[in-house]
Every structure is written in structure tokens, then in C-alpha cells.
Design a binder for these strands. Structure first.
Lengths: 248, 248
DNA sequence: GCGGTAGGAAGCGTATACAATGTTCGGCAA
DNA sequence: TTGCCGAACATTGTATACGCTTCCTACCGC
């Protein structure tokens, strides 16, 4: 996978640690970029649920120390994208069926609830931006770039939420969308990723017309459709229930 | 406040570091306890918005190193209870008027939306527990322990959300309640803290009767009432708008 | 031959040391 | 006396070192 290797730009023969920090101005931005890198890789399924994320390895790849890696990993853990097991390290979260249900339940409530306000506030510029995002998503889907399509779909839903003007709820929706990507990775049937290609365009139409009611109903169906497309079969993980399997 | 000082039990004369670690078994639990300690102090207004939280000081108070403190501080920052300013350190978040509006908007949507499901699922045991919490809150209020009352009120709302069975939304409500405590600290009129004393009991009544509709409406009024009791006057913070003040 | 235990290796948790930055106080000049 | 500049101090950011736990493997006993 292709997270940008900052090591390359150092041009030294690997072992010689850039002793200098590159920290001075850009420390925070650098961490943010690395966070985005990992987050994107997870959302785009380049890192699959269950994949182990060793601190040393990440530290070396990104050219920072484990301290910084841990900080980023903790943030990702709080957003439920990675799971931190006490003495075992980090791995990409494998959502349970229960979590999947909760996440889509939450999206149903929040995203639908946001529609009326969005329909009220939306501006022509916003419509243009959304249409552009929807178009790029369709293009990605058409050319087989599923990773890009997944990320763009999540970005669309998040941007939509931002238009409500409620930053707190928008951030929450953003998290829910990220987790949804993970859920799709585990329970999604291959070849059918979340959002139908024309759904988003239809939704924009309702919002542009200021028809919050119809937009709400449509979003509800949209999310229900995604959830219904999942094949949620709770695979036995911790306790394989041997009694049931080998029961006399 | 009463966080257990492990320094004390070492009984040495301060400077001699506890031969270190006490880490073995309880490392994680210890951090969790410290997190709770700080979190509670903020929610109960023992730490007021704007208060600086120096890493050294916290490290010494709790008998751990700055590393652990930073971890906890970052978690609190992600939950918006403390603000991390790049080279300036941590301080208790002072919510803006905008944030206050967003938080109550979010609560309105989520907590009201949860009511029907809660009314459907609630069990006699839950009712008993809620009534007990409401009673303790009233007692605290009556005996003037405002700190306890504030925390109990937030805990009540959070527990309520948990009864919906949706852990994701419950966690979100928990965060919103914590932030609400902060908002009360900044914008609340003294002597009138958030929830009216009998409101919670009335709400339990509706839920016990399985009347989700009435519970929803009541919760809506309840939250509106709290928000209305705030005196939100956007005090100029960053840019005091000197032109307006000293304008020729 | 199989199972159990011991020893080593690998990786995480914590503390500490060091570097960089922001702040404040004191001195010097106008 | 006042305003500006510089240096010391205080505090955070980052890296590294060390200890502990867990896992793997090999050896020994049965």
C-alpha cells in the first residue's frame, strides 16, 4: 500500500535516523498527516479488519518514534477504528454484529434528523459541491476504484452533515461513516458497496428543492438499503459454543 | 478531593521515587481511575473552565510520569473536556456559545429520538434504578451539594440513554452530558442548575407507563428549559472587537 | 512419541532525558 | 522614566532506554 514514505525524501541509507526532527514547524501537521494516512488506509480497506498494527513498524514507516505512533493509535482507538488490546498491541477493529446494528441505528436517527435543517440551509454553492462529490464517487465506482468510492461515499455523508451547521453532530456522523466503512469490509457482500450510485444525486435533488420531508424519507430508505445489503452473520469469535457444535 | 495517593502508601520522604512501577497489575485500571478523577472534577466544577492543567503538577499529584498524564489529557481533549493548545499546554475547555447551541441541539435530537425505544424496553429493575438516581440527585440538591447534583444529573441522562440498547448512541449522549456540565459552568445562572428537581421523576413515570410519545415531548421540553435557563452572552474572546469598543 | 516446562525473543508500557518553544523579568538606551 | 531587547526560566514535544509480559520454541521427562 502506498502511504507516502517520508523516509524516501531523507535519502539516507535507512539506518541513519534523521536526527533532526523535522519537527520544528510542522510537528503537529505531520502527526495529523500520518493520522489521515492510517485512517484513510483503514477506511479504504487497504488495511483490513484484524490487521495488526505494530508500533515499531509504523514508527519506521513514517519516520517518527513510537511515542508519536502511540498517540495516533490512541486517537484511532477512541474513534473505534483500531482496537487496543492491553499487552498485545493495536489492530484494525473488527466490528461485531451488535456494533454494526448500533452504528446504523445511530446513522438512521442522526442523518435523517439532520435532513430538514440541511434542506433549509443549503446554498447553490453547496449543491454544486455535493454534485461534484457524487460525480467523482460515480466515476470511481465505474472505473473499478472501489477504495476511492468507499472513501468518497463516506466523505459525502460527512459533508452533508456539516451543512446542518451543527459541528458536534457533523463530527459524530463523520465517525459513524468511518465505522460504517469498517462494517462494510467485514459484512459487506463483495461487489456491492454501500451506496447505490444514483442515490446521492437523487438526495441532492430533494435538498435543492428544499423538500426536507422527502429528503428525510429518502435518507431513511438509503441507509436501510445499505444495512439490508449486509450479510450479518454473527460468526462465533470468542466462545465457539462447542456444546452447540458437538452437542451429544 | 480524594484520589488515592499512592505516594502516601510508599511512605518515603517524597523525593525517593517509589521504586517504580506499581505498574505490574493495575497499570490500566490506575489510568482509568485517574481519568475518572479528572473528568469528575471537571464535570463537578471543581476545576473551572479555563483552569490550566500542567502536566508536571498532575504527574506529581497522581504519582505517575508525564507520559501517562499526557495520554489521559489527550483522551479528555478528544472528548472536548480539555483544550490542548500546541505549545501552551492543557486547560479546561471553555465552551463557546456556538458549541453550547450545538450540544443542546444534538441532545434534543438524540435524547428525544431515543425515548420511544427506551419506553419499549424499560424493565421494572431499570425503573427502580432510575428512581433511586433521581432521589439521590434531589437529596444532593436539597443539601446544597451542587457538585454531586450536577454529576448525578448527567449520570441520569447517560443511564437513560444506555437503556435504549444502542451503546454507540449512549456513549455519545454521555459525552454530550459531560460537555453540558461545562456549559452550565460557563453560562448557567448560579443557583439554578440544569434539571428541575422533579422533572426526572415525571419522566420516569411516562417511561414506566410505556408512553414513548409523551416521554419524547417531555424530554424535549426538559432540554429546552435547561437551554433557556442559560444566559448565553457571547463574550468576546479571541478578537475583542476593539473597533466596536474603542471605535472613534 | 507426546506433553509439559523452561528459556529466549519480541513487543508493549512507563519513565526519563533532551531539545525546542513560549514567557517573563531585568538591563540598557533614549 | 519608559520602551525595547535579550537572556534565563518554565513548560511542552519528542526520542530513547529499560522493565515486564506474552508468545514461541526447543529440550527434557515420562
Amino acid at each position: 500500500m502506498n502511504q507516502r514514505q517520508s523516509l524516501a525524501e531523507d535519502g539516507d541509507a535507512g539506518k541513519a535516523k534523521p536526527r533532526r526532527l523535522g519537527k520544528n514547524g510542522d510537528g503537529a501537521e505531520r502527526h495529523e498527516a500520518i493520522y489521515r494516512s492510517i485512517s484513510d488506509a483503514i477506511i479504504e480497506h487497504r488495511l483490513k479488519p484484524g490487521a495488526r498494527l505494530r508500533e515499531d513498524a509504523l514508527a519506521e514507516v513514517f519516520g517518527i518514534s513510537r511515542t508519536g505512533v502511540r498517540k495516533i493509535l490512541q486517537r484511532l482507538a477512541l474513534e473505534q477504528l483500531v482496537t487496543l488490546t492491553p499487552r498485545r498491541g493495536a489492530s484494525v477493529t473488527r466490528p461485531t454484529a451488535e456494533e454494526a446494528k448500533d452504528v446504523f441505528g445511530a446513522r438512521q436517527m442522526v442523518e435523517c434528523g439532520l435532513m430538514p435543517e440541511i434542506a433549509r440551509r443549503i446554498e447553490p454553492d453547496d449543491v454544486r459541491e455535493l454534485r461534484d462529490m457524487a460525480r467523482r464517487e460515480r466515476d470511481a465506482l465505474k472505473s473499478g476504484e472501489q477504495s476511492r468510492a468507499i472513501k468518497l461515499s463516506a466523505a459525502f455523508h460527512e459533508r452533508l452533515a456539516q451543512l446542518s451547521g451543527n459541528a458536534t453532530l457533523a463530527a459524530f456522523v463523520g465517525q459513524l461513516c468511518s465505522r460504517s466503512s469498517l462494517i462494510l469490509a467485514v459484512y459487506g457482500s463483495s461487489g456491492h458497496l454501500g451506496c447505490e450510485s444514483h442515490d446521492h444525486d437523487d438526495l441532492i435533488g430533494f435538498l435543492e428543492a428544499g423538500d426536507g420531508e422527502r429528503a428525510t424519507a429518502f435518507m431513511g430508505r438509503h441507509l436501510k438499503a445499505i444495512e439490508a445489503s449486509l450479510s450479518i452473520v454473527e460468526e462465533e469469535q470468542e466462545a465457539p459454543d462447542l456444546y452447540r457444535i458437538f452437542g451429544s
